[in-house]
Design a protein around this nucleic acid. Sequence first.
DNA 1: GGAATACTTTAGTTGCAACTAAAGCATGAC
DNA 2: GTCATGCTTTAGTTGCAACTAAAGTATTCC
Lengths: 119, 119
Amino acid sequence: MTDDLMSVLHSPRRRELLRLCWDEPCAAGALHAAMPDVTFGAISQHLAALRAAGLVDVVAQGRNRLYQTRRAALGPFRRWLEQSWDDALYRLTLAAELEASRRGPRTTSRTRSRTRRRP
Amino acid sequence: MTDDLMSVLHSPRRRELLRLCWDEPCAAGALHAAMPDVTFGAISQHLAALRAAGLVDVVAQGRNRLYQTRRAALGPFRRWLEQSWDDALYRLTLAAELEASRRGPRTTSRTRSRTRRRP
DNA sequence: GGAATACTTTAGTTGCAACTAAAGCATGAC
DNA sequence: GTCATGCTTTAGTTGCAACTAAAGTATTCC
């Protein structure tokens, strides 16, 4: 699960695509226009990978296909990070930030076994 | 920065290595013993990559070299996730968890430009 | 119907990352 | 000193992921 997500998110190109359609649906052509150093085909293939991983939603609209990032799908990825993490300190700082945000706008802050040794 | 981290963390093998020396320093040989399906050389190469990315600390101890995960180094990675995230809902659930933990143990188209179309 | 647009899919290439095997380099024991 | 151990580095191979080019599909407009 996380492995799949990782291998998809590994590509800077795909992360960029996710970023581009993060806030609003975006046509494949528009996404391509934003990264003109590759062919349309390449973009379409990346979008297919994101689709397969469930990281984007697609809706057809006329001749266009509108892509949008499914933020919720990044949850397992985030959870992986958190599970393998010493959360104590982080949670405390986050709690502090939450406190602050209630008052005003934030300004963020063995053994041995050598294998495969054949003659 | 995040790109580098991503390309290092992309490998399940390296994530496993990080996990293995998460809580205590661990000799390279011991790490290899935990994943005997690859050669010692391969492990050493992965450890070199983790070292280069600053994700592990190493100390020599006699003939051994002890590796330990630098959890703090995963910070930027985590921050990337958070920055590109709709945090509102997440923060609310986290706040709820914090509340609960105070009471008892948790159970927790625009333009078009097809390029590279040569004759 | 046909032409144009918007996108996807397929086939083929290329570069890189993970690996093996083997040599190299320290350190400790003798 | 020599030998063994523990690890790293180098050289070479192999498989895969990102890409291009081109063909294919679907929709709209005339």
